[in-house]
Design a protein around this nucleic acid. Structure first.
Lengths: 201, 201
DNA sequence: CGAGTGATTGACTTAGATCAATGACCGTGG
DNA sequence: CCACGGTCATTGATCTAAGTCAATCACTCG
């Protein structure tokens, strides 16, 4: 789990860990934010309850992700956070963080930079979802995430995870990859996919 | 067009406007970033060229959006920006902005807050795309975007725009809305959709 | 060694994309 | 003032890619 490297050491030192049972609440809409969180394992969903009492899921965060960044600048949380599965989270105290940003503008900049990069990544993921064809979606993913050599993509998680990222069922992804392998467009290795040649346009 | 209200007045004063013809380049990958941009009209696409020479679109930004926030903290742009249609952009000088953040930490905070909110919005939009059924996708959209009363949603653009936002064809959206109206779940007004009652769960 | 999960492939179904046509509306230029 | 070109809104018909259900095999982990 890559720790939040942009966090000032002083803040990291003050972090507390908390374990959540499935269904347990981390915070509720309207609560006063005391910390923001990094999820070290499990799953936490952010949701709101609509007028008719139904829960509307805003986001499901997994291990390695941070949530409630926005609440650093707000006096209340704008949604609930509930563990979807057993989870452990690291809580970084809001006060310490804001103080660090005040003192050390490098730290504040690092935070902004992280957010800005995240915005770009998310935008790209949305753009990806605008591609209807599974095949082209996978192609787009591979092109965008090709490493330095522009040819190979290292898979972080399982193919099932990737499928979820791409908004495909895992079956659809397997089939699409298989087709691309058959057509000689890619090669699959252990945790790696290599682009062989683009098809003629 | 809601101007970027979080921008310090000093920076806004220094902004320059630029008009782009379709296909004209705003900046190129590798260029040194001198400004970041707000699109006041038209469309600008951010893209990279992959190893095989194909253009990979990372994002298409429309009027009201800002791009290249991340380049404020980078020494080079990481993608190209090209007008997809005639566009006008407002350029905010990077140096002035960073200087303002240095001097005025309120301004820096406002920037972070804007980014953090954007991150949350984008995450929610991705979550929305994970919903496969057009009907449930629309329901999710309506629930999330219901105004203060929790019942009515004000449409900003056309229904076609909304369809694109939701990742549906406009035909699919029309049909889905028509079905929801027929079933008495919503009501359509001029630029407004009102939730009438939730269906039984 | 069994339970749980990932990877993979087959068969079938369907929701939504695609193609197509129409009417309403709006600005604009003669 | 009206005709015309453009876009939005809407609905119908058709098709297909991807979802769904299902089964198998390979691993890994207590």
């Amino acid at each position: 789990m890559p720790n939040q490297d942009w966090l000032p050491a002083a803040v990291r030192a003050k972090a507390g860990e908390r374990k959540l049972k499935p269904g347990e609440t981390l915070f509720r809409q309207g609560d006063r934010p005391m910390s923001f969180f990094e999820i070290t394992s499990g799953r936490v969903r952010l949701s709101r309850v609509d007028r008719s009492g139904r829960e509307v899921v805003l986001y499901i965060a997994g291990a390695g992700e941070t949530i409630a960044e926005a609440s650093l600048f707000s006096t209340v949380y704008h949604c609930d956070a509930i563990a979807s599965a057993a989870a452990t989270v690291r809580a970084y105290p809001k006060a310490a963080l804001l103080a660090a940003f005040d003192k050390d503008r490098k730290a504040a900049q690092a935070f902004s930079a992280t957010l800005a990069r995240q915005v770009m990544n998310l935008r790209t993921r949305i753009e990806q979802r605008n591609i209807r064809s599974a095949r082209d979606r996978v192609r787009h993913y591979l092109s965008v995430n090709a490493g330095g050599d522009g040819r190979s993509v290292t898979l972080t998680g399982t193919l099932k995870d990737l499928a979820a990222d791409l908004g495909l069922t895992h079956e659809a992804l397997y089939r699409t990859l298989a087709a691309l392998v058959r057509s000689g467009e890619i090669k699959k290795g252990r945790g790696t996919i290599t682009l062989l040649r683009g098809r003629k346009v």
